[in-house]
């Protein structure tokens, strides 16, 4: 059972969360009208072994979207921050 440290709610079972993929990429600015840019953002992903940042939403808790750092090889969780604060910084 992966345990996710929610900055609001504390450490919780991953079953309270939904996973939404790679958080290491930067979403194109709204209105970017280049198909290739969007294509690469939506469809091209690395499949790294080791530390990886990914989106998780605490759907059965505070509903906040988190950026979680997880080692894909060992499932070790290094930490999580609110996506909102990360995007702002």
């Amino acid at each position: 059972m992966l345990r996710i440290p929610c900055p609001h709610c504390g450490e919780r079972d991953y079953t309270e969360f939904r996973y939404a993929g790679d958080a290491s990429k930067v979403r194109p600015k709204h209105g970017t009208d280049d198909v290739k840019t969007w294509h690469d953002f939506v469809f091209l992903f690395d499949n790294p072994k080791g530390p990886h940042r990914e989106y998780w939403q605490h759907v059965l808790g505070c509903r906040q979207w988190l950026v979680l750092e997880r080692n894909t090889a060992t499932n070790e969780v290094m930490g999580a921050v609110l996506a909102r604060t990360r995007e702002a910084s």
Binding site: A20, A23, R27, H30, Y55, Q57, W65, A83, R84
Partner: peptide, 12 residues
Amino acid sequence: SHLEFLLQTAWP
């Protein structure tokens, strides 16, 4: 979830 995702990650 989609709306929350956009507001929290894409368009804060």
